[in-house]
Nucleic acid binder design. Structure first.
Length: 397
RNA sequence: GGGUAGGUACCGAAACGGUUAAACGGAGCAGACUGUAAAUCUGCCGGCGAUGCCUUUGGAGGUUCGAAUCCUCCCCUGCCCA
C-alpha cells in the first residue's frame, strides 16, 4: 500500500483528493480488485510524441502495480476539438481523418504499455448515441460561470476571441466518458484538470463513486518554452527515426535536461545528478536512453554515432537516402542543379533551391556549388548535400 | 434583427490610393561560433530556367493610369442593444 502510493506519487503534480486515492487503494488490495485507470487521447494527430508519454508512463506504473488501464480514444470528441491549451478553435476533423489517425496508435502505445492488459475504447461508442434529452440532463450539472472558470476559456473570453457552443460541451462529454467507463482514477496533463474534474462532477451527479484525478507535468518541446505539440513544431514523435529522435533531443536547451531525465527515463536521482555535471555527456546519455527505450540498444548506439559523425566531426554519414535518376531526367546528357535538388526533395521549391545555392550551402561530392544555372554531367554515383544535415546519394541508371 | 469595430503571408501585428511580394516580432531555413541541431550574432524567408514575369492582404464585382488601401454585395468574428 505504502509502496504503491509512493510509486504513484512520483512525478505527479496533483492528486485530487489524495485521501480518496488511499481509500481506493486500500479497498482494491483488500478485495483483490484492480483499479480502473482511465486515460484519454485526442486522435487529432497520428503520432504519439514524448509529451504524451509522460502520462502514459504513469499508466505504466499503474499497470506494473496490477491495475487495469483503460485507454480511451476520443474519436467522437475529436470531431469537436478540445480547446485545451489553444487560444483558438481547433479545426473539426472528419470521421475519415480520425480513422486514419487511429491506425498505428496501438502500435506506438505498445512500446510503453502491455497491450494485452490494456482496454482500448472509443467514445463514439456511447457519445454518438447520446440523445439530446440526455445531453441536456448532463448539461444541467454545470453553469456557464463554472465552465468559464476554465483557464483557456476565460482567457479567450477576456481577449474577445470566439468560443463556440460545442467547445463548451467538451468537458461535459469527457466527463461522461468517465461515467460510462466507471473509472476509479483518471490521469492527464495539468491542462486537463478542468476536464478531469468534470468527470468527478458527473459521476457523483449520476450516483457513482467519483474518480480520483492525477495530473502530470506538461513537457516543454524542443524550443524549451512552449508545451510539446504538433502544432508548434517542437515535438519529438516516438515513431520518428532513431537518428531524428536523438538529434532533436540534443537540440533541447540545457536547462530542460533534468526535467526530461525525470519524466522520460528510468534513471535514478543519483545517476541523473551525476550525469548533469557534464552537460554534453548528460545530453547524450539522455538522448541515448530515450532512443534505447523505444528502439533498443543497437539502434541507440547507431543514432549516437550518426550524430557524432555529422555534427561533431562534420562528416558524411554512412547511410543516407538514395535518389535514382532515369534517362528521362537528363537533357542532352546533363541535368540542371536546381532540378536535381527538386527531385531529391531536399528543398521545398525551385526558389528555395536557388536561395540555398546562393547561400553557398549546397555541395556535390564535397564541392560547393555557387552557380544556380549549373548543368551537371552525370556520374555513376554522387553525394548531394544541403546545409549540414541534409544528404542524398544520387545514382544514375 | 439593429448598431459598432474588425478579417493582412505559418502565427502575432503595421501600412489605409502610388518609391509595396507588403514594416516589425516570433516560428522556420542557412551561415559564423560552440561540447550541442543550446545561447548569441549574421543572412534568407510567395512562385517561376528569373536582373524579368506571374499569383497574393476574407469572397465576388466595380471606380482609377494605379487598390491591401475607395465603392457595392456576400461570408466570417468581437463588443453593445433587443
Amino acid at each position: 500500500m505504502e509502496r504503491q502510493l509512493r510509486i504513484i506519487q512520483k512525478n505527479t503534480v496533483e492528486i485530487l483528493p489524495e485521501k480518496e486515492l488511499i481509500k481506493k487503494l486500500e479497498s482494491s488490495l483488500k478485495e483483490k480488485k484492480p483499479l480502473r485507470v482511465k486515460y484519454g487521447i485526442d486522435p487529432t494527430g497520428a503520432e504519439i510524441h514524448l509529451g504524451h508519454t509522460v502520462p502514459i508512463r504513469k499508466l505504466k506504473d499503474f499497470q506494473n502495480l496490477g491495475h487495469k488501464i483503460i485507454f480511451l480514444v476520443g474519436d467522437f470528441t475529436a470531431t469537436i476539438g478540445d480547446p485545451t491549451g489553444r487560444n483558438e478553435t481547433r479545426p473539426i476533423l472528419s470521421q475519415k481523418q480520425i480513422e486514419g489517425n487511429l491506425l498505428g496508435y496501438q502500435e506506438q502505445i505498445g512500446k510503453i504499455l502491455d497491450l494485452k492488459k490494456t482496454e482500448f475504447r472509443h467514445n463514439s461508442e456511447w457519445l454518438a448515441k447520446l440523445k439530446l434529452e440526455e445531453l441536456l440532463r448532463l448539461a444541467s450539472n454545470f453553469t456557464i460561470a463554472r465552465i468559464l472558470e476554465r483557464d483557456d476559456f476565460f482567457l479567450r473570453y477576456k481577449s474577445g476571441k470566439p468560443i463556440f457552443m460545442q467547445e463548451f460541451l467538451y468537458p461535459l462529454m469527457q466527463g461522461y466518458d468517465s461515467v460510462i467507463l466507471n473509472s476509479d482514477i483518471e490521469v492527464g496533463a495539468t491542462e486537463q484538470k478542468f476536464n478531469l474534474l468534470a468527470g468527478r462532477t458527473l459521476q457523483e451527479a449520476l450516483g457513482k463513486e467519483p474518480q480520483v484525478i492525477i495530473t502530470m507535468p506538461i513537457l516543454e518541446g524542443t524550443d524549451g518554452i512552449r508545451k510539446m505539440s504538433k502544432s508548434f513544431h517542437n515535438y519529438i514523435g516516438i515513431n520518428e527515426k532513431p537518428e531524428e529522435i536523438y538529434g532533436k533531443l540534443m537540440s533541447i536547451p540545457d536547462s530542460l535536461m533534468e526535467k526530461y531525465f525525470h519524466l522520460l527515463t528510468e534513471l535514478s536521482e543519483i545517476e541523473i545528478s551525476e550525469f548533469l555535471k557534464i552537460p554534453l555527456l548528460a545530453k547524450k546519455r539522455l538522448a541515448h536512453s530515450i532512443v534505447k527505450s523505444y528502439y533498443g540498444k543497437e539502434r541507440a548506439e547507431r543514432a549516437e554515432k550518426h550524430f557524432e559523425t555529422i555534427f561533431q566531426k562534420r562528416k558524411v554519414p554512412e547511410e543516407m537516402p538514395v535518389l535514382k535518376l532515369k534517362k528521362s531526367d537528363f537533357k542532352e546528357g546533363k541535368i540542371w542543379i536546381i532540378k536535381l535538388l527538386s527531385l531529391s526533395e531536399l528543398v521545398t521549391s525551385h526558389s528555395d533551391a536557388r536561395r540555398l545555392i546562393l547561400q553557398k550551402t549546397v555541395s556535390l561530392n564535397g564541392e560547393i556549388i555557387t552557380n544556380p544555372d549549373l548543368e551537371i554531367e552525370p556520374k555513376e554515383e554522387a553525394i548531394l548535400k544541403v546545409g549540414k544535415r541534409r544528404f542524398i546519394k544520387i545514382k544514375v541508371k
